[in-house]
Amino acid sequence: MNSIFDMENTTEKIKRGITALLLLLITAVLPAQHYLAEEGKVYFKSDAPLELIEARSTAMRAIIDADKRTFAFSVPISSFEGFNSPLQRVHFNENYLESDRYPAATFSGKIIEKVNFTAPGTYTVRAKGKLTVHGIEQERIIKSELTVSGAALTVRAAFTVLLDEHDITIPKIVYQKIAEEIEVEVEAVFTPE
């Protein structure tokens, strides 16, 4: 057993963590209707005066409990691709986000508005929850667009992450290359479990 654990790589660790988190939620809301998303997209952009950095991931997993209006989103940090160079990606993972120590960014909480998940349409909802990036938890309200079509749910949201709020420190030299505010966009298609 030990040897298997030792052999686990980071990705598997993350997956395990997410599964645990989702399982926790699932067990908590077991009799309720819940929706799962497996390949949610996350895109972020750092628009600094000297450099524009973009990266995206399609490895976001999420769950929404329709009855309790609770949700959980999680994306492995190491799944982000793009950047302006492979080295930049290494820096992103190793220096700034420290994905070894903090493998995933998560957002979990509750939707403020009451939403009818069975009536097709597009709703603007606000998700109130804890955003954890770089191991730092911040309470946030994130405005999202929720589209109900048939059985599927689509969630789109755009928000900003302030680096200093998550203890992500940028060395002086690259200061002008990385924005204080990272713009994040999320899109996920949920299907009922």
């Binding site: 509750k110 403020i112 109130k128 911040q138 309470e139 946030r140 309200i141 302030l162 709020e165």
Partner: peptide, 10 residues
Amino acid sequence: GRHLYNLNTD
């Protein structure tokens, strides 16, 4: 000044 926070029954 930065973010809006909500305080409710939760």
